[in-house]
Simulated scan of single mutants.
Amino acid sequence: MGEPAEKQRRATYADLEAVAPMKVAELVRGTLHVFPRPAPRHANAAGALQGELFGPFHRGRGGPGGWWILPEPELHFPDPAAPGEIEALVPDLAGWRRERMPELPETAYFALAPDWICEVLSASTEDVDRDEKMPVYAREGVRHAWLVDPIARTLEVYVLGEAGRWGPAVVHRDAARVRVEPFDAIELDLSVLWAK
């Protein structure tokens, strides 16, 4: 009989801090995930979506205001499997209602879970975004999650249910014009998210 497999060491925030600055690093369930910077279609979709939401919701121009809409914020959550340790997630976009977070924190990270997150999917990140990060967002009480796929040209919309689980996805495609929670005060033209 062979020796039992050696237990893999849980990564820590110090491991995340040691990652090269031109990489995106996240710490989820004790595993360090390191990705290259986003590819052009990914960056275009994230930037276009932020542009569509920033004026009406962050600034209140042509919309209700009342939000902080931020690109790539570092979120810190307690790691339930390792007391005293954290999980560090970096969604492509996140939004907080200002009534919950009246001022931005002084720290380089956010300890308060956002009200909305958006992950832009790519071949290198999709499994982590769906299988590892989405359950953490649900556990932390993020009410709304969007998954944008710039290759398939889809927007998947999730709302957190009463049981703390994501409801079924509502999927919008191609050049649809949609009103989607929590930003349904404006109509969003999905065609602006796809590179032309």
Rank of each mutant, 00 (worst) to 15 (best):
A108G: 14
V128R: 00
A108W: 12
T12S: 12
A185Q: 15
P135L: 10
A48F: 04
A39K: 05
F35E: 00
E103Q: 15
G167Q: 06
E85Y: 02
R173P: 01
H42S: 09
D79M: 04
A175T: 08
L190K: 01
L104P: 12
H172A: 01
V90Y: 01
L89N: 07
D184G: 14
R165M: 12
D189K: 09
V19N: 02
L121R: 00
V192C: 08
V24E: 10
R41H: 04
E74S: 15
M101H: 03
R179A: 12
G65M: 14
R37Q: 09
L155I: 05
E126L: 03
L27F: 09
V136C: 13
E3F: 11
E17P: 10
G66F: 06
G63N: 11
R41Q: 09
A45F: 01
L190N: 01
V128Q: 01
Y109M: 06
L190M: 10
T154G: 01
F57H: 06
G95K: 11
P105S: 04
P56M: 05
H33A: 11
E72P: 02
R59C: 08
Y13Q: 08
E87F: 05
G60V: 14
P105V: 10
D15C: 14
H144I: 10
L70A: 14
V90E: 00
D189W: 08
L188D: 03
P105H: 07
V192Q: 08
W68E: 07
V34G: 06
V178H: 00
E181M: 06
L70W: 04
Y13E: 13
R61T: 13
G161V: 10
L190P: 01
T31P: 01
L70K: 07
D189S: 14
A111T: 15
A43L: 13
F35P: 00
H76M: 08
A82M: 11
H144V: 07
P73M: 09
R29G: 06
T154N: 02
W146E: 03
D15S: 13
D131V: 11
G65T: 15
P21K: 05
Y109R: 10
E156Q: 07
P182H: 08
A5W: 05
